[in-house]
Design a protein around this nucleic acid. Sequence first.
DNA 1: AATATAATAGTTATAATATTACTATTGCAA
DNA 2: TTGCAATAGTAATATTATAACTATTATATT
Lengths: 205, 205
Amino acid sequence: MTMRNKAKKSPVALAVLALLFEEPMHPYRMWQLIKERSKDEVVNVRYRNTLYQTIDRLVRDELISKKETRKEDNRPEQTLYQLTGRGRETALSWMRQMLAEPADEFPEFPVALAYLPMLSVEEVITLLGKRLEKLDAEKIRIEKQITPVQDKIPRLFLLEMEFILAKLQSEIKWVRALLDDLNEGTIYWDEAWLNSILEQFKNKP
Amino acid sequence: MTMRNKAKKSPVALAVLALLFEEPMHPYRMWQLIKERSKDEVVNVRYRNTLYQTIDRLVRDELISKKETRKEDNRPEQTLYQLTGRGRETALSWMRQMLAEPADEFPEFPVALAYLPMLSVEEVITLLGKRLEKLDAEKIRIEKQITPVQDKIPRLFLLEMEFILAKLQSEIKWVRALLDDLNEGTIYWDEAWLNSILEQFKNKP
DNA sequence: AATATAATAGTTATAATATTACTATTGCAA
DNA sequence: TTGCAATAGTAATATTATAACTATTATATT
């Protein structure tokens, strides 16, 4: 009795299943809907091929199945996919996991923080200044997506945007505080200081 | 004149280069140091093989090079690696990018938020409650790493921990607020409500 | 009217990373 | 002395990211 392939969850895979809850659909159409509805803020479909690849494995794992290949007038051929029973169950099970269990993810910024002393204090100050500008710009970009529709569509459909906005704001606040500490010298390092620290740790275990 | 392979930056790759700034080292030793120094909170070395794979490509791209293969007494063979000039430059350039330019990353939680109506309000409330518990536990875990060493080592060496703690706290706050709204009914949906919304959008473009 | 460009739909190929499962040696504890 | 943990590395597969294609139709430009 060979164990069934347990399909791997991923943002793109969930988006595919969620769309197929609505109706059978071809991959390109999914891509369009994801962009139209701004879900591309939270699922990476920058490279459309990722969608095709994901769909292939979902077919292989029997979460979805090919429905038909059709040729609408004046359009290239389209391959329609539909949900299977297993696909429905799996989508719900993924939702439950993704909501209840924080995933451990490894973003880049904290890694750079971990190795700050590779650069000079002065340079770090300049670089973090640039980061702040970009974070502010990104914050404004997200707000511009939310504000105009806020009184037209229910909040329920803006939650992911609100969440990334909240995260952005907290990062901005934190980086600003760090910059202050660096400017005031509360946090400081240079060659000499780093060497003296190293000595201390060689003496005491 | 073929363009030189532009090595791809990644948390693991940066960690490797950063360690080799200290001295030549073998992969297993890097793995140990990353864990000893708790850098595994921000670079994913859960699977040690990732480290070996990354090192292979860094060698291929000439950011590091094999120094020697040695056999210390009563130890398996070790392959020592060292930084190249290109490796030094690249590490600094990566640091500059990672500090100055926010990367776009695609964590799982916001995707689940984007498809909340797949589940019932009641179930979402339960699931978010569980998430909150785990976020709180994780917060305590991080605090327990920071507190005991706070007055022994300079803040400079705890920044990445402080950052992930700040992000955790902001997520906790946000999820708690969402839970309140769901409990109060400020945000609500069910079959009937969703269908009526759908109707509205069919009429108005 | 001819031509360029954008949009539609999908394919092929490669690189990178995640994940599991190995081999082989030594140290240490039950 | 048996077994497990630690040390060091290898092999194989799955997934995802990234770029570059093909081919058709729609639309804009000259």
